[in-house]
Amino acid sequence: MMHFFQRLGNTTLASFAKLGRSSFFLTHVLSAIPATIIHPRLLINQLYSVGVLSFLIITISGLFVGMVLGLQGFYILSDFGAEETLGIMVAASLVRELGPVVAALLFAGRAGSALTAEIGLMKATEQLSGMEMMAIDPIKRIMAPRFLAGFISMPLLTALFSSIGVMGGHIVGVGILGVDDGSYWSQMQAGLDFQDDIINGVIKSIVFGFAISWISLFEGYDAIPTSEGVSRATTRTVVNSAFTILGLDFILTALMFGDI
């Protein structure tokens, strides 16, 4: 029994210590952001590897998610003779929830894990120490551009995901199942609110981008510099990002759409 409490205490202390380290890390990274913006060469490289290279997975997933939404939506709505409203159903689900959340989960799996593994291996091969000894701040040169790239890419990838999803819904709903083309678009236009739906979706994706970048960079930086340590850190990035995204999504949805 004592053993259990001892372990509980140790785990709690360790997680608070880690929270503290990660907060220090975040402040350090944020303070290095202005320098990154002034010299954007490193940022552009990272926008490519973090953002552009995630393009394919986001596009394909967006297409299929939209197609499934079109299919399921059509079956349910047609029971009520409301298949004309398929457009708004697909668009609202994507823009409000599925777009930001699924794109963020995919981004954490594709780009977040890659960032953690890269930084963890840099640590294991003494590249980070080497930089420090050359009086080059690794936070400034390595972390800040990657952080900013994740933060910028996430809303753009989410927008891409949702737009492609709407197209997917259109292909299935209008192209295959015969929903009227005009009502697909006009229902969407009439039903979606710019402030309530689109801006809120963008806010979600910005928050998720911030969280994923922070988690994946810190896990890499804090990894035990061995092969096992880096592999564990990469797993933690994906798991923790998923929890964080889903938890934050609930909180944000409650704040945005609830009457709290």
Binding site: M122, T125, E126, Q127, S129, G130, M131, E132, M133, M134, A135, D137
Partner: peptide, 19 residues
Amino acid sequence: LYTLRKRMGMLFQSGALLT
């Protein structure tokens, strides 16, 4: 410290070149 480190070179066992 960073100013001082500019005057100290260090050769790591692995080389620590940026990949």
